[in-house]
Amino acid sequence: MQSFYPSQIIEYMYCARYTYFEYVLRIPQNEDKFYKVERGREVHNEKLESNKDYLRKKIGVTEKWIDQYLGSEELRGRVDEVLQLNDGTFAPLDYKFAHWKDRVFETYKQQLYCYAILIEETFNTKVNKGFLVYTRSKNKVIEIPIASNSKDMIKSSTQAMLEIIEQNRFPKATKFKKRCLNCTYRNVCVK
């Protein structure tokens, strides 16, 4: 059984052809050359190290696990922090090398939905919300609700990705053509 990282599911949801190019044709993206990706990784590692013993009591954290690699049949990934809250539920917390601009990107939410599934399966618990920390806005914390249908959307995406891979099927491109402008596969994709 194939398992996916949250970033791969997010790419699929952006355009299903990412899955085809990455898994069927095995064409690498070479995204590591982008400065923000590299700088984000550095800040991420710094935050994990500096916040080892910090409990976020303001949001009701009673216990936490940092830098947790979690895996299930369809998903795998490294969660910055798994939080146990005072109501008995758990929540993912993810650091973003970004400024808070009064809106949360869908990709950030989708990543939290993936982490919610992993936490529920690993810790046999309920996840109703997650948290984002915007490191370039004085570590502003934003709470994100996580509904059951959001987790269902992730699970159906993993099934669709498996079908593309197993059936060697070239999927339809995204209907949002502006997405093609910055796509790492734009030079090989038939529109």
Rank of each mutant, 00 (worst) to 15 (best):
I117K: 07
A147N: 14
K126N: 04
I117S: 03
A147E: 13
S148R: 15
E73H: 06
K151E: 03
S150Y: 13
E120N: 08
G77D: 02
V79D: 01
Q110S: 03
S50I: 12
L70W: 01
A91W: 03
L83S: 09
F34T: 13
S137I: 01
W100H: 09
A98V: 02
W100M: 10
I66A: 11
L70Q: 02
K47N: 11
V37N: 12
E63C: 06
F131T: 07
G130Y: 02
D102W: 08
E166V: 02
L70A: 07
N45Q: 14
V133T: 00
D87S: 09
I119L: 03
E73L: 07
N51V: 01
T62M: 12
N139G: 07
K58V: 05
N30E: 12
E81Y: 10
I146T: 06
L118I: 05
L83C: 08
I119G: 01
Y113P: 02
S150L: 08
T62G: 07
L118K: 04
E42P: 06
S72R: 00
L162D: 09
L70T: 05
P92N: 01
W100P: 07
L55N: 14
R56Q: 12
G88T: 09
I144G: 05
D80K: 02
K129L: 05
Y115P: 00
R56P: 14
E38C: 10
S156H: 01
D67F: 06
G77S: 05
N30G: 13
Q159C: 00
D94T: 04
K155V: 00
H44T: 03
F34K: 14
E46C: 08
R39C: 12
Y54M: 10
V37Q: 12
L55D: 14
K109Y: 00
E46H: 03
K101E: 15
K47G: 06
E31C: 13
E166G: 00
M161W: 00
L75M: 03
N128C: 04
L162W: 02
N128E: 13
H99F: 15
N128T: 10
M153P: 00
T107H: 08
V79C: 06
E63P: 11
I146R: 04
R136I: 06
L93G: 10
Y69S: 11
S150W: 09
I142A: 05
S72C: 04
N124Y: 15
V104E: 06
I66H: 03
K140M: 08
I66V: 09
T107F: 06
Y54H: 14
D87E: 12
S72D: 04
E46W: 05
F34G: 08
T122W: 09
E163T: 13
L75T: 00
S150G: 09
W100Q: 08
I146F: 05
T62D: 12
